[in-house]
């Protein structure tokens, strides 16, 4: 199966990487290619609730998360116990993996792209 993992690791507001990674995920899904997402590092900031970026900060990408299921993007993985995930007020659609499963995740896909 031609499945793809998009790994977001960049801050949603310090560059366009997160947005362009999500764009690729949405296009893959539009072409009916199975695609999962995983987030680590600065990209975890994407998951915080109550974000209100203005135009200068960048696009409101958090709102996009609720729409992912309409593209059949249903697996959004994070690593359990990661520092930023303890803060609370986090988007509820993620699946938390323990360290072993997180590291195994990256060899389960035909394509892995990092943004």
């Amino acid at each position: 199966m031609n499945n793809t993992l998009i790994h977001l690791s960049s801050s949603p507001y310090s560059s366009l990487a997160c947005k362009e990674g999500l764009d690729l995920a949405l296009v893959l899904a539009t072409f009916e290619q199975p695609v999962d997402l995983c987030l680590s590092g600065a990209a975890l900031a994407l998951l915080y609730d109550n974000q209100a970026p203005n135009k200068t900060d960048g696009k409101q990408l958090h709102k996009l998360l609720d729409g992912l299921e309409f593209y059949d993007i249903e697996n959004i993985y994070v690593e359990k116990n990661s520092e930023l995930m303890r803060a609370g007020n986090i988007w509820s659609g993620t699946k938390a993996l323990d360290s072993e499963d997180w590291h195994a995740l990256f060899s389960q896909y035909q394509h892995v792209f990092r943004f």
Binding site: F106, S107, Q108, Y109, Q110, H111, V112, F113, R114
Partner: peptide, 8 residues
């Protein structure tokens, strides 16, 4: 990154 898994 080598993006294809060795498994596949």
């Amino acid at each position: 990154l080598l993006v294809n898994s060795p498994l596949t």
